Simulated assay, not measured.
Amino acid sequence: MLFEKVDTIFIPVQNIEKAMPFYVDVLGGTPGWTDNNGNYQTIAFGNTSVTLCSIEHKLEKKLDTSLFSLYTTSIEKAHAYIASHGIDVSEVMEEGAAYFIMKDSDCNRIEICSY
């Protein structure tokens, strides 16, 4: 199977610091990786995680962030496979992990990653 698991679920929040107590103290998650700009914070739950992503507006329109990420051991193979189906994909990017972005038929962003 090309895709082995759902890697993370992105959860838009207006303020990561204010959102953290719910995911850590209430739900029992463990804080993990955060980016250098403070726009992303992972919270681990067993073998998977959610990623809090900072937004500056209310959720009244489509988001510009991926809703979830699929993990693959071969980012280039996955990129070629998705593109071969006529789906518009971004270039493969690197920021702590290799990833690319595509959109479903409703323009929801989905990320494919490898690390």
Rank of each mutant, 00 (worst) to 15 (best):
G86V: 14
E91R: 10
T72Y: 01
N108W: 05
T34F: 00
N36R: 13
S105F: 13
K62S: 12
V13I: 09
F10A: 13
L2I: 15
E60I: 11
E111P: 03
V13H: 06
T65W: 15
D88G: 11
D106H: 08
F100Y: 13
N15P: 05
M102G: 05
D25M: 09
H79P: 01
K58R: 09
G32W: 04
L70R: 05
M1C: 08
L2M: 15
F3C: 10
M93N: 14
S84V: 04
L2P: 14
I112S: 05
N108I: 06
Q41E: 01
P12K: 03
K61R: 14
Y23S: 00
A83K: 14
T42E: 05
S69D: 06
K58Y: 07
A98G: 11
N36W: 11
N108S: 07
T42F: 03
I112L: 09
M1V: 11
L52W: 00
F22N: 06
I16F: 02
A19R: 00
E4W: 10
F68I: 08
I9L: 01
P21Q: 04
G38E: 06
T30Q: 03
A97D: 04
M102N: 01
K18V: 08
G86A: 13
G29E: 08
T34Y: 02
T73I: 14
R109S: 09
S49L: 07
K18Y: 10
C53N: 00
V6Q: 06
T73C: 10
M102Q: 05
D35K: 08
T48P: 05
V6K: 01
E95W: 13
V6H: 03
C107Y: 09
Y23C: 00
V6G: 02
S49H: 10
I101R: 03
L59K: 15
Y99M: 07
L52N: 02
V26G: 07
C113P: 01
Q41V: 02
E17K: 15
H57K: 15
T8F: 00
D88Y: 13
C53S: 01
P21W: 04
A97L: 04
V26K: 12
Y23A: 00
F3M: 12
K62E: 11
Y40N: 06
C53M: 06
G46N: 07
I11R: 10
K77F: 12
E91P: 01
E56L: 04
L63H: 09
G28H: 15
D7W: 08
K62T: 05
C113S: 10
Y115K: 11
K62D: 12
D7Y: 13
F3S: 10
G96H: 06
K5H: 11
A98S: 15
V24W: 07
W33E: 05
E76D: 13
N36P: 10
S54K: 15
W33Y: 11
E94H: 13
F45L: 11
C107A: 12
I82A: 02
T72N: 04
F22M: 06
P31I: 00
V50G: 05
V92K: 04
I43M: 03
V92E: 03
F45Y: 15
I55S: 03
A83L: 08
H79V: 04
P21S: 09
T73E: 14
K5F: 07
M20P: 07
E111T: 12
V50S: 02
C53R: 01
G96Q: 07
S84K: 11
F10C: 12
E91C: 08
I87A: 10
E56Q: 08
L27I: 10
E17T: 14
Q41R: 03
E76T: 09
W33N: 00
